[in-house]
């Protein structure tokens, strides 16, 4: 945690941490506290007075069908994005790990989407799936007779944002899986091969279990990404619609607070989300501590 040999100075260390601590207190801790406080009040329509209502904002939220539905949407969205992007990335990483020739070229073509902003990923897929002129919507119609219209069909809209969010995340997962695969000792795999284990069997009995620290780490990171960083994808494309079909929890905080101006409810939603992130961060860090001994 700290050096054995340190410098001695009464005020310098405080000066050095001051900028970071100032930003943290003003723009992180204080707003978070404000959200916590506001979540216990109900404000009148004109914003003149507010009443302390204990947990009414929370009980109202959990009685609200729309909010519960948003929980469900978030869960479906998060799990689908995580599963899709991780499984595709794993397949690609396993393949890239086998290739000897042109490995760098392949890697180059696979990692660049990391740099594409979620909002742009959303817009790209929004265009390709556009019901009247999107090229994929056209192909779906022509080949499978699917009538694609995410403007009216909620499930299709959800599928659209899931694909866009997963597409953007593949590169990230790919790089971590590749690093994980490269750290597995070759001798283990060779030994299994000598014992006559087929490649499939070697993968499921040796490679996949040894990858589990990476897999678990990515699982948490991807869920956090899907729950929080995908706001831009939804805001830039479907706007939570149609009929709230793509309104995930972070989008709901925004729409309740900024569009609907219901501050108490928005703050209560913020608090619920904070609890969620804190729980996920704790899981992530506890796991990392275990990985150090691994």
């Amino acid at each position: 945690m700290q050096k054995r040999v340190v410098f001695r100075n009464r005020w310098l260390p405080y000066l050095l941490v001051a900028p970071q601590i100032a930003v943290t207190l003003i723009f992180f801790i204080w707003p978070a506290y404000q959200a916590l406080e506001t979540s216990f009040f109900v404000e009148d329509v004109f914003g003149f007075s507010r009443n302390f209502v204990w947990f009414e904002n929370f009980t109202r939220l959990f009685a609200d069908k729309g909010y519960l539905r948003s929980f469900w949407t978030t869960l479906v969205f998060g799990l689908s994005v995580t599963f899709l992007s991780m499984s595709m990335a794993l397949a690609l990483a396993v393949a890239a790990n086998r290739v000897l020739k042109a490995a760098t070229a392949y890697r180059t073509f696979l990692i660049w989407p990391y740099a594409v902003a979620p909002a742009l990923a959303g817009v790209l897929w929004y265009f390709m799936m556009n019901p009247s002129l999107g090229i994929l919507a056209y192909m779906l119609e022509g080949t499978f007779g699917v009538d694609w219209n995410h403007y009216v069909n909620g499930n299709q809209a959800l599928l659209l944002v899931i694909i866009a969010a997963a597409w953007k995340q593949i590169s990230y997962n790919f790089l971590f899986f590749l690093a994980g695969l490269q750290s597995i000792p070759k001798s283990l795999i060779e030994a299994a091969a000598i014992d006559g284990a087929s490649p499939t069997r070697r993968f499921w009995t040796i490679v996949f279990p040894l990858l589990s620290p990476t897999t678990f780490f990515l699982l948490v990171v991807n869920l956090v990404y899907a729950f929080f960083d995908t706001f831009a994808i939804i805001h830039a494309t479907t706007n939570g619609g149609p009929a709230d079909a793509t309104s995930i929890l972070v989008y709901k905080v925004y729409s309740t607070g900024f569009v609907g101006q219901d501050y108490g409810s928005s703050a209560a939603q913020s608090v619920i989300l904070m609890v969620l992130v804190i729980a996920m961060t704790v899981v992530q860090f506890r796991f990392i501590e275990r990985k150090v001994q691994y």
């Binding site: 404000q34 506001t38 960083d229 925004y254 607070g257 703050a267 992130v277 804190i278 961060t281």
Partner: peptide, 14 residues
């Protein structure tokens, strides 16, 4: 643990 997305309104106020 406090991404912007979860504390939009109060941060905006600050």
């Amino acid at each position: 643990m406090l991404p912007v997305e979860v504390r939009i309104l109060p941060t905006y106020d600050v």
